[in-house]
Design a protein around this nucleic acid. Sequence first.
DNA 1: CGGCGGGTTGAATAGCCTCAAGGATCGTGG
DNA 2: CCACGATCCTTGAGGCTATTCAACCCGCCG
Lengths: 264, 264
Amino acid sequence: MDVISITHHREAPRELLRRRFSALVGDGVDGLAADVELEAPRRALGAGEGIFGADDPQPKIWLLASGVAGDVRVLADGRRQVLSLRLPGDVLQGDAQEAVVALSPVEVVDAHPLIRALGDRSPEHQPLRQAWVAAARLEQALIRDHVVRLGCLSAHERMAHFLMETHDRLSQVGLAAAASLHLPIKQDVIADLMGLSVVHVSRTMQVLKRDGLAHARSGYVALPDKQRLAEVSGYISRFTRAASRTRRPALPQTIVSQRFASLH
Amino acid sequence: MDVISITHHREAPRELLRRRFSALVGDGVDGLAADVELEAPRRALGAGEGIFGADDPQPKIWLLASGVAGDVRVLADGRRQVLSLRLPGDVLQGDAQEAVVALSPVEVVDAHPLIRALGDRSPEHQPLRQAWVAAARLEQALIRDHVVRLGCLSAHERMAHFLMETHDRLSQVGLAAAASLHLPIKQDVIADLMGLSVVHVSRTMQVLKRDGLAHARSGYVALPDKQRLAEVSGYISRFTRAASRTRRPALPQTIVSQRFASLH
DNA sequence: CGGCGGGTTGAATAGCCTCAAGGATCGTGG
DNA sequence: CCACGATCCTTGAGGCTATTCAACCCGCCG
């Protein structure tokens, strides 16, 4: 099968962002190249390292260039919950209430140039601002999907749903093949993400394999039958819809978007 | 015990909003009275009614004046998840991806005057905009708390945590006594909120009663020992902290707040 | 080769669910 | 004012899902 690594891909960070944004608002953001420089400072971290150290100097916003990170909350007794998975092309904001932790080896680049571009109100950056708002809205939708996963779905459904979602997200930035994805995280992370025990994650993966729905091997997951995987999990893509959905001209755009724009 | 109803209280909608906002950003929003008119149109709905009908004419933003509503998602096979509870003083935005449903008899008032005030950029409305952003950020934090509840906590912990949180939220708008709250929703709603079965919600409430932690009777819940209730659930208030937390002057405020401002 | 981290397996248990029946409460109509 | 039905809550019994604990396996690296 075709294989794309998300820790060792060769895409420029800006290109990842461009793909993500143009999937959200069309091609208006292609000019991203013009003035948004996203290469340095670049930082590499190993799995387990916190991305926002308390002693950090300036940059409080990073763009995830490669690898997997996650918003993690740890309870007093050691139980952990991974609130959301962060994939290449995502913007990581240290401002958040949670710790953002590298779940695989990752590379991050300073995203302040992007923030600066968003800050000025010139009309040429209008599509960029729209994309930023759309991205926040999408993130919002994803965390709500996560609530439903945890609240309503069985272990099998959860895993299937999660794999579909992650494949979709990686596809959007061009980092997944048609029927497989690279997911270099350990099972205990998946467990803390899905609200399950490590043991049960393992068992569930076995069943998915037996059913011909997902084969995992050394960080790569093949999804031979996405159709059926979507059916058994009730998965509805947030991505294909976003493109075709008709926008209703509702409230003063400023307010609605202000509500979403600061989410990262 | 002292009793305050949230379906039949006599607070003006604007007063609820003022309390909520001033708890977030201080007294700067007291001038809310000046130009933000929040009384009409007023609408009453019964439990179970959707608040945003597809046939709705204009107002797509309501302020919840009394009662309880919720963001509800229904799966294809009928399973339901209540994503978040909406309490008096909350702003309901039909723009959201979810259905917003009345979970008790509710009254809503048109919130467009508020939106208009947020829309103009005059300096006198600066605190109002800050509060709006802070409210969105809080909402964000609450849904993440919900993820942790569903992912990490046992049924008892979930219930205890939920009761603490709801009591806190109602206290903030002055609609809860010191050690009790009015929660006029049925157990099946709590079940769909907590990811449990109705039966188990009932049993769990019995145990909480036995332990002297929560007595529910006809929509009113007494919390005789909030201290212990917080301990057993690992509850950390988002409200007392918000007031005392030191704000770090981080990113250009516009961007950060844009990210939050359109969330409702 | 030994050790180690991560994955897998088995057995026993706990937590929560389902089904089904029995109470309590409340509004309604006689 | 009481009987009635409807709705919601409670209780019991049994079963399934997921957990825990423990051992074992496997690939990798020193």
